[in-house]
Design a protein around this nucleic acid. Structure first.
Length: 697
DNA sequence: CGTGGTTGCC
């Protein structure tokens, strides 16, 4: 805090209780406190007292850099001719620009320095400018600077060559990085670590481990905490528990577990490898923890679907006085989304706003997804629409939300808008877009987008995309084409691809193909009850009851059980859970009376029970078993206890059944209620007798 | 040179 500025012969300033008598001390203090106001005061004093020596100007440039004020730096530079002929001044400017939001200005400056000012770069200049090209689109600039530093003879400088390895790695050019590394006459541990980190950043985990092996075999160097936190991260990426445990041993032996970076990597490695107990043991070892340690363990819970435990850790974290950061909020939003608890999600949204964290792209995308998964399309779209910066993940999230809510056309329109805005789509974006095409029956558009993946966007389609295409063809009944499409795939079809085709066979009642596809699926995933149910339903619909029974027997032989249908509904602050055939609720009597009344009402309007959905029931009692489905029980309860006119929100653990879907449509009209059913993969919003999914799910 | 992170088909 500047208490007073007093001019004597030289500058004397009282800062707090300390007296500073030289410009250089003043500047040091300003740099340390990052006080921009203080710096500008010194600036004007330097100018008025004629102390604008090159040394002072360069120090001041450095202080402005510390304060992060690019405008001040540029102004000082422009108004001081002395600086424009000095390599230190230029280097300070370039370094600051390299680390700014728009690093390409550092390159412009670098070129101006050489061409216009004819100042020769030194090795500080090279290490300042290289980070400015550390992005894939700027690879050619990195190569130009590489050529230049070869000309200046700096390539054998260990520090510069290491910076170059890092730069090429950040340009996603590991071949070039490796080449520079191989030609280095001397390598220190930082050089080795840079190469490891490079492979790590480019997800070439196996190569990162390979570099560690070479480091151990070929050199006398000792890997340090940076080495270990990086290779552990590679193990986490590979889900390689065996080697990860070995590394843990080395970490203990070398007494590096006290470094919080190393510990965090270890905890994360155990979480990602699915051994949460080992992660928790390490987490609780009494050593240092920081916000990342907490985030890692919280994400570990989310990964293991232990949502309640994730919330408990989050509360412990706050109790221990650790301030949650963007990652913490993003994880908690994922919890709210997974549990579809809108109230909790909204609470976190408020907290995010209060702490000014909506700018963060991860938080933003998680928030959009949370509202989507909690059933509020309008809130998701509002958050998306009001966002300032939207990256491809955020767009992808919104596209997916539209799709989950049955708005396939809107999803596709949004994708087109995204392309018009110049946002580059990625792998997952196409999963949602192709699914949207499938659900809206847009076969030609689907193929156009599918082909554009490789041809326009350089994305190799994966199994997820192939499944979408099979679904796309299968849904509109082009089953033979779908089969041929599978045969033409360059990769081996997996259960998701065959599963899409079996679903289509079910929808279109193709017994022969269904049998053939189901046989493959029974081999690929004998434990998945869905395939048995689908085939059995195909048989039932064709009156092939013996064959249907045979499939049920096969299920028994293979020890596969159909998951019990379960629906739940929130009333005030209580959650009421209904299993199929549930008679445990105290108001069961009223619930069944309500259902009986509903059945009679809708029968007069043309409802015929769709008994093919009555699986697992004794012949003759199919209709009765249909009316004991969990979502119907939850609906009846909701109609009984919720105030008239308020929406009925039901969540279900499985796909909703066709008969229930029909009943919900009728009920929404008769009771003039909005009924929202979230099943395992989408939302059904019933209003006035129709569903948002347009009966296509 | 270093830990954690957002989005998905069915």
């Amino acid at each position: 805090m500047v208490v007073g500025l007093k001019m004597v012969d030289s500058i004397v300033v009282k800062v707090g209780s300390k007296i500073f008598s030289s410009v250089s001390n003043l500047l040091k203090h300003a740099a340390k406190s990052k006080n921009l106001r203080h710096a500008t005061q010194i600036h004007s004093q330097i100018v008025t007292s004629n102390e604008a020596s090159l040394g002072n100007i360069n120090s001041l440039l450095w202080v402005y850099a510390k304060c992060g004020s690019i405008d001040s730096t540029l102004l000082l530079f422009a108004t001081t001719p002395l600086a424009s002929s000095n390599v230190v001044s230029w280097t300070t400017l370039i370094s600051q620009l390299s680390h700014s939001d728009n690093p390409s200005r550092a390159l412009t400056c670098f070129n101006r320095m050489r061409r216009t000012a004819a100042v020769c770069p030194n090795h500080f200049t090279f290490s300042a400018v290289l980070p400015a090209c550390a992005h894939p689109p700027l690879l050619s600039h990195a190569q130009q600077i590489h050529a230049l530093l070869l000309k200046h003879g700096f390539h054998s400088d260990t520090f510069i060559a290491t910076t170059l390895v890092d730069t090429y790695a950040n340009c996603a050019s590991m071949a070039l990085a490796q080449n520079v590394f191989d030609q280095m006459p001397h390598r220190n541990l930082v050089s080795w670590n840079s190469l490891i980190v490079g492979f790590l950043k480019n997800k070439l985990y196996f190569r990162a481990i390979g570099v560690l092996r070479a480091l151990l075999q070929k050199t006398e160097l000792f890997p340090d905490q940076v080495t270990f936190s990086s290779v552990l991260s590679a193990c986490a990426g590979m889900v390689e528990l065996g080697f990860g445990k070995q590394l843990h041993g080395s970490v203990v032996k070398r007494a590096l577990v006290g470094f919080v970076y190393v510990k965090n990597s270890l905890v994360d490695m155990y979480c990602k490898c699915g051994v949460f107990q080992d992660a928790a043991k390490l987490f609780c070892d009494g050593g240092d923890r920081d916000v990342v340690t907490w985030n890692v363990i919280i994400m570990g819970c989310v990964h293991g679907l232990n949502f309640e435990q994730a919330c408990n850790f989050f509360m412990d974290m706050i109790r221990e006085g650790v301030e949650p950061d963007e990652t913490s909020y993003s994880s908690l939003l994922q919890v709210s989304a997974s549990l579809a608890v809108l109230a909790q999600g909204t609470l976190i949204h408020g907290r995010v706003l209060k702490t000014g964290r909506l700018e963060n792209p991860c938080v933003l995308s998680s928030l959009v997804t949370m509202y989507g998964k909690c059933g509020s399309l309008s809130d998701a779209y509002r958050v998306f629409g009001e966002a300032k910066d939207r990256n491809v993940v955020c767009w992808t999230a919104m596209i997916a939300v539209f799709h989950q809510h049955g708005c396939g056309n809107e999803a596709i329109e949004l994708f087109e808008e995204m392309l018009r805005e110049g946002v580059v789509p990625e792998y997952i974006t196409f999963v949602s877009v192709l699914s949207a095409c499938s659900h809206t029956g847009k076969v030609d558009d689907g193929f156009r987008y599918f082909n554009s993946m490789a041809n326009v966007h350089c994305i190799e389609p994966g199994l997820e995309h192939y499944s979408c295409m099979v679904d796309l063809l299968g849904r509109v009944g082009r089953l033979e084409e779908a089969w041929r499409f599978i045969e033409s795939m360059p990769v081996k079809p997996d259960s998701s691809v065959w599963g899409a085709l079996l679903g289509a066979c079910g929808k279109h009642g193709n017994v022969e193909m269904g049998e053939e596809v189901a046989e493959r699926l029974f081999k690929l995933e004998p434990d998945n009850p869905g395939n048995y149910v689908l085939l059995s339903n195909i048989y039932t619909r064709h009156g092939m009851l013996e064959e249907a029974d045979e499939v049920r027997r096969l299920m028994g032989i293979n020890g596969v059980r159909k998951e019990i249908g379960c629906s739940w509904i929130d009333v005030k602050n209580m959650t009421f859970v209904f299993n199929a055939d549930d008679r445990s609720h105290s108001r069961t009597q009223e619930i069944h009376e309500m259902l009986q009344k509903l059945k009679e009402l809708i029968k007069t309007r043309g409802y015929v029970s769709e008994i093919q959905f009555a699986t697992n029931s004794v012949e003759g009692s199919e209709e009765q078993s249909l009316w004991c489905h969990s979502e119907k029980l939850a609906l009846a309860f909701g109609l009984l206890v919720l105030p008239p006119g308020s929406p009925v929100r039901i969540k279900k653990n499985l796909r909703t059944c066709g008969d229930c879907h029909t009943v919900m449509k009728f009920a929404s009209e008769i009771f003039q209620r909005e009924i929202i059913v979230r099943d395992i993969n989408r939302f059904h919003r019933f209003t006035n007798g129709s569903c948002s999914c347009r009966d296509y799910w």
